[in-house]
Design a protein around this nucleic acid. Structure first.
Lengths: 133, 133
DNA sequence: ATGTAGGCCTCCAGTCACTGTAAGGTCAAG
DNA sequence: CTTGACCTTACAGTGACTGGAGGCCTACAT
């Protein structure tokens, strides 16, 4: 299977698949004309990578997950630990975003948003009120 | 005021302040020895930038916000529009993260996490269940 | 006067995960 | 035989810094 079809099937851009090969995440065969040739196994890996990335795992996480995926003897506990750590990171990021959101909506609520020049949002950013860090 | 003090007062790393000068966000004076010299006005701008960045505005957003901040005639509506757009983006990102979180915790819950090798998390990533995209 | 410690300077490279672009080879159809 | 779609590599750019090298400048102790 050529890279175009592999791209369509996996949902990953061809560029991304080539990049994954560059960094050693996947090693497709080569046809005589030099084109990459993806087997079913490769397609499974691409699908795996696509899902793991869409869940926010980093490339290095994916490398580890792939090796765990291929090691049929590994303990499921190893995977669970990684997944939990990742969940913690996500929870943390969500909290951060929510805090930003809260601060900014407070400022937005205070702003009348009309033709007049005085603006509580800019005042807030300038430090007259609110503002973390 | 030298960059070290400016860094301490604004909470921004000196490297970051130099970077902001590089990209034209701020233009401190220079002392005779070549050192940057930050006035009160510059310090206000740095504080402004620090807060805007901590609320997740991009550098380009900050550039716009700063110019609005300096234009005492602008309508507050202009600022409010930007802020609202940014809030929308944040809300969107939070939703995305929550969706990832939900999918992954479902998988984590199913995983017994012991010495046995079969792992619902990896199975899920491989596509046997769940998985977006 | 000298040593040394720290702060400051510039410039270049690296981060992460791609994405865009250029310049060219290959293949199937008309 | 040419067109156009598809494939190849290699290099540069993204955002927002961050790290490091190599070299002045300043302050203070000896």
């Amino acid at each position: 299977m050529n890279i175009g079809e592999a791209s369509t099937n996996s949902g990953l851009p061809a560029k991304t698949i080539r990049y994954y090969e560059d960094i050693g995440l996947i090693s497709p065969d080569r046809a005589e004309n030099g084109y990459r040739d993806f087997s079913e196994t490769h397609m499974h890996k691409l699908a795996f990578l696509s899902r793991a990335r869409s869940l926010g795992f980093t490339i290095e996480d994916c490398r580890t997950l792939l090796s765990l995926y291929e090691d049929t003897d590994r303990a499921s506990a190893d995977v669970k630990v990684m997944a939990r750590e990742h969940l913690d990171k996500m929870a943390h990021k969500i909290k951060e975003l929510e805090a930003m959101q809260a601060t900014l909506s407070e400022l937005v609520d205070k702003c009348h948003g009309d033709e007049r020049p005085d603006c509580p949002i800019l005042q807030g950013l300038a430090g007259e009120k609110a503002g973390k860090r």
